[in-house]
Amino acid sequence: MREHAAQRQTHPLPTRPIRIAAAQAQAAAGDIEANAAAAAAMVREAGRAGARLVVFPEKFLSGYEPDLIRADPRRYAVGAGDPRLDPIAEACRETGTVAVVGAAVHDQGDLYISALAIGTSGELVARYDKQNLFKSEHEIYREGTAGCTLQLDGWRLGLGICYDSGFPEHARAAALDGCHAYVVGALFGVGNGHHELRTWFPARALDNTCYVVLANHIGTTGGWDACGSSTIWGPDGRPLAEAGADHPELITADLDPEALLTVRDSEPMLRDLRDTATEARAWHRLG
């Protein structure tokens, strides 16, 4: 569970930059073994590029594929200690890179849309379950109950999944927990989805003066035509690296504590944030 907002100033800035990668690729529908192999290859590519962390799209291990997952969750979702994750774990051990992989997860009879953080020793170091489910996802999955902050090399990285990013409160909760970056795997489609990602993510960055990382699908998955365009934004809301719309690609950017400090000095919204509960009550009285 994240800490109270009053504690947000207790976490110092990192002491050195970190390189983060966003991976976009075509997921093979329901083929967890093939998708894990593809993810492992991109972990190694990220490691060669000097990245300490690479994030993958939402439910990349199976593809989005709600009908497959609902029909046979044992086959199309993963569980604790699932050997199909071994190729990714091995790639993380070889490269010293952390992978945040999107997956459907079955846990004690329930299904979740999750981000699995696999550490540099190949172990599962964190699991975040999507808190804001989209439309028909409510029929299949349970909502997550808590946010998740991943710590790496002095950086605090708040995890999100797709529709989470449409709610300013989600990224704000990460920022109030001292996060320096908001890291999201997603499925955004052509058309309105592309408009949403180009609107939501720069706003999440600037509102919270934090880096934002998005990994999106390409191709068709679960009936959606994905728009690619994975991007890493700086804490001022400006893009630092952008992928294309329709081909596999790994993008990287260096997150720099000096740049973070500079933006936070010039854009003090997070520092000046008022108690929103008190403000809401005052608004109600005025109304």
Results as ranks from 00 to 15, higher is better:
Ile69Cys: 09
Ile69Arg: 05
Arg70Tyr: 10
Arg70Ser: 02
Arg70Cys: 06
Ala71Phe: 12
Ala71Cys: 09
Asp72His: 14
Arg74Ile: 02
Arg74His: 15
Arg75Met: 08
Tyr76Asp: 02
Ala77Ser: 14
Ala77Trp: 11
Ala77Tyr: 08
Val78Pro: 07
Val78Ile: 14
Gly79Ala: 13
Gly79Tyr: 06
Gly79Met: 13
Gly79Cys: 09
Ala80Val: 09
Gly81Gln: 00
Pro83His: 05
Pro83Tyr: 04
Leu85Cys: 04
Leu85Ile: 08
Asp86Pro: 00
Asp86Tyr: 03
Asp86Cys: 01
Pro87His: 04
Pro87Phe: 10
Ile88Asn: 01
Ile88Thr: 04
Ile88Asp: 03
Ala89Gly: 10
Ala89Arg: 06
Ala91Val: 05
Ala91Trp: 00
Ala91Met: 04
Ala91Cys: 05
Ala91Gln: 00
Arg93Phe: 11
Glu94Met: 12
Glu94Pro: 04
Gly96Val: 07
Gly96Gln: 08
Thr97Val: 14
Thr97Trp: 14
Val98Asp: 06
Val98Tyr: 12
Ala99Tyr: 08
Ala99Cys: 05
Ala99Gly: 00
Val101Gln: 05
Gly102Ser: 02
Gly102Tyr: 07
Gly102Asn: 04
Gly102Phe: 08
Gly102Val: 03
Gly102Thr: 04
Gly102Ala: 10
Ala104Glu: 10
Val105Trp: 09
Val105Pro: 01
Val105Cys: 02
His106Val: 04
His106Pro: 00
Asp107Leu: 15
Asp107Pro: 03
Gln108Trp: 12
Gln108Met: 12
Gly109Tyr: 00
Ile113Lys: 15
Ile113Leu: 15
Ser114Phe: 10
Ser114Gly: 12
Ser114His: 12
Ala115Asp: 08
Ala115Val: 09
Ala115Ser: 15
Leu116Arg: 05
Leu116Thr: 02
Leu116Val: 14
Leu116His: 01
Ile118Gln: 03
Ile118Cys: 03
Ile118His: 03
Gly119Val: 12
Gly122Leu: 02
Leu124Val: 13
Val125Leu: 07
Arg127Phe: 05
Arg127His: 03
Asp129Leu: 03
Asp129Met: 01
Asn132His: 02
Asn132Leu: 13
Asn132Val: 07
Lys135Val: 14
Lys135Thr: 13
Ile140Arg: 00
Ile140Val: 11
Arg142Ser: 09
Gly144Pro: 01
Thr145Glu: 06
Ala146Val: 05
Ala146His: 11
Cys148Met: 11
Cys148Trp: 02
Leu150Asn: 06
Leu150His: 10
Leu152Ile: 15
Leu152His: 06
Asp153Glu: 15
Asp153Gly: 12
Gly154Glu: 06
Gly154Met: 11
Trp155Glu: 15
Trp155Gly: 02
Arg156Met: 07
Leu157Thr: 03
Leu157Ala: 06
Leu159Trp: 09
Leu159Met: 10
Cys162Gly: 06
Cys162Pro: 04
Tyr163Gln: 02
Asp164Pro: 07
Asp164Thr: 01
Gly166Ala: 14
Pro168Ser: 13
His170Pro: 04
Ala173Glu: 13
Ala173Pro: 00
